[in-house]
């Protein structure tokens, strides 16, 4: 009997155990992702481009077959609608760029590196997205990531042009913040609850002037995020009691389900 046929069960068991044990013993807990991570990110980028392309092709096919059957007037209506949609898109883009220009002028020492979201973590336990960096600029772990809406998270792992971004609603994420109105200090922590996008606002002192609806911004403490970036708005606030701190819930400014393009803030040091 050949060696493989005779011992295939044992070989399979050894290999099955070896992979997770090797992975568990890997010292690179965060930071550099390795070549395997890069390969997976590349294949996911190709898949994203492929699915996007296929959707566009199907959309074009549908449009061309419909165009044959509709009246001239309907064609005009469609083209006008299309133009209108495009103009709305241009206005939104303009608005986004204006906000980014505002950030640039307020923080001239930083630069924004654009990155496209290519995939998400597939488990409900972790809130991480993978991005493809659009430029050749070197990205480092822990660099802050923003969108035109506000703070997204920070770089978790990097491999060449690909990076994993840990969102602020991940349970491993913590962020030093201030209320914009009264400059009261607090810490934003991700709950990790996949059924609720809100995050926790910890260490709000009972005597601080904080109320529902207050805008929360980054404090600049901790050395990761620049100050005064919008994080979110207070949704729920525990009434004042005799305890030292009050619990609060925050609705993030960024809608994480609609992330397409994000910006890594580089050039701090």
């Amino acid at each position: 009997m050949p060696f493989w046929k005779r011992y295939n069960h044992y070989i399979a068991i050894v290999l099955l155990l070896a992979i997770p044990i090797f992975s568990l013993s890997s010292k690179a807990r965060a930071g550099e992702g390795g070549a395997l991570f890069g390969g997976a990110s590349f294949s996911q980028y190709v898949a994203t481009a492929g699915v996007g392309g296929a959707m566009g092709w199907l959309s074009d096919l549908f449009d061309s077959s419909s165009a044959k059957t509709i009246e001239d007037l309907q064609t005009q209506i469609f083209s006008l609608r299309e133009e209108n949609t495009r103009l709305i898109g241009v206005l939104q883009e303009n608005n986004r760029l204006r906000k980014l220009v505002g950030f640039k002028s307020a923080n001239p020492k930083f630069s924004l590196v654009p990155a496209d979201v290519i995939s998400r973590d597939v488990s409900p336990f972790f809130n991480v997205v993978s991005v493809r960096i659009q430029t050749d600029e070197k990205i480092l772990p822990n660099q802050p990531v923003v969108s035109h809406e506000g703070v997204v998270g920070k770089v978790y792992r990097v491999n060449r042009n690909y990076a994993d971004i840990m969102l602020i609603n991940d349970s491993r994420s913590g962020l030093d913040v201030l209320t914009q109105r009264t400059r009261a200090r607090a810490v934003v922590r991700g709950t990790g609850d996949s059924t609720n996008a809100d995050v926790q606002l910890d260490y709000v002192t009972s005597d601080s002037e904080v109320r529902k609806g207050d805008v929360i911004v980054t404090s600049g403490m901790g050395g990761v995020f620049p100050p005064d970036l919008i994080v979110g708005r207070i949704k729920e606030l525990q009434p004042k009691t005799n305890t030292m701190f009050r619990d609060a819930q925050l609705t993030p400014a960024v809608d994480f389900s609609r992330l397409k393009t994000v910006y890594v803030i580089t050039g701090k040091d």
């Binding site: 399979a12 290999l15 992979i19 090797f22 992975s23 690179a28 807990r29 991570f37 973590d121 597939v122």
Partner: peptide, 29 residues
């Protein structure tokens, strides 16, 4: 069939590890 299912699992363990962005190894272990 143990052999074929174990072989398929061996082949997909690394991609599973990539797809999960948590602490390394815990999910696949």
């Amino acid at each position: 069939d143990f052999s074929s299912s174990a072989f398929i699992l061996i082949m997909i363990l690394w991609p599973m590890e990539w797809a999960i962005r948590g602490e390394r190894g815990h999910y696949v272990f």
